[in-house]
């Protein structure tokens, strides 16, 4: 089995990895690059805990062979977390207790990021729709929707850009 070399942009830096053919982006991130914010809840595309942004769009890294993202821009939760402090979405999750065990949180935050980039003032219904692929077994979702609403208020209220697209 010959390994293959794949290059892509990860959180603003160029990375080059040597992988077995059709290794998932999830596995490369977690096992090779140490980007473990991207979680592994099902590897079936069913839980959303491995959500990353590919060219700004949320995708499931467990279903993506890393070869498919060659030359593309991948952003994980590490990529939106400032060196000091928190992104406004993270602050809102923290303040609203939009998490309990924390396992679904990275996926939730990444979908929230993509949603607010597309639609800065989403309705609660639009938020619920956006996170419908992200399963949380602890919170019951309301605090998560509250957090995304709060983040939307802050980001659009202050005219702050969330970057990305």
């Amino acid at each position: 089995m010959a390994s293959v070399i794949v290059n892509f942009e990860l959180c603003g830096r160029d990375v080059e990895v040597l992988v077995q053919p059709m290794t998932t982006l999830q596995s490369v991130l977690r096992s090779q690059l140490g980007y473990t914010a991207t979680k592994e809840g099902c590897r079936q595309g069913g839980c959303g805990s491995c959500t990353v942004l590919v060219d700004g769009e949320p995708m499931l890294s467990c279903l993506l062979p890393v070869e498919d993202v060659a030359g593309r821009r991948v952003v994980t939760l590490e990529g939106i977390t400032p060196i000091d402090g928190l992104h406004p979405i993270q602050e809102a999750f923290l303040e609203s207790n939009g998490f309990q065990c924390g396992y679904c949180t990275p996926g939730m935050v990444m979908v929230a990021k993509a949603l607010l980039d597309h639609d800065p003032r989403p309705s609660r219904e639009a938020i619920a729709g956006a996170i419908s692929g992200n399963l949380c077994r602890c919170t019951g979702y309301q605090p998560i929707i509250d957090a995304i609403e709060k983040a939307a208020d802050r980001l659009s209220g202050s005219g702050e850009q969330t970057g990305g697209r």
Binding site: P21, M22, T24, R43, Q44, G45, G46, L60, C62, L63, L64, P65, E67, D68
Partner: peptide
Amino acid sequence: AGGTVAMPLVNDGISLPTQVMGLRH
């Protein structure tokens, strides 16, 4: 194609292909 049906089977070892063609590009 999109991998949303095939990859879950591969990830769980239910499908054990040796050669795969992805149509995304």
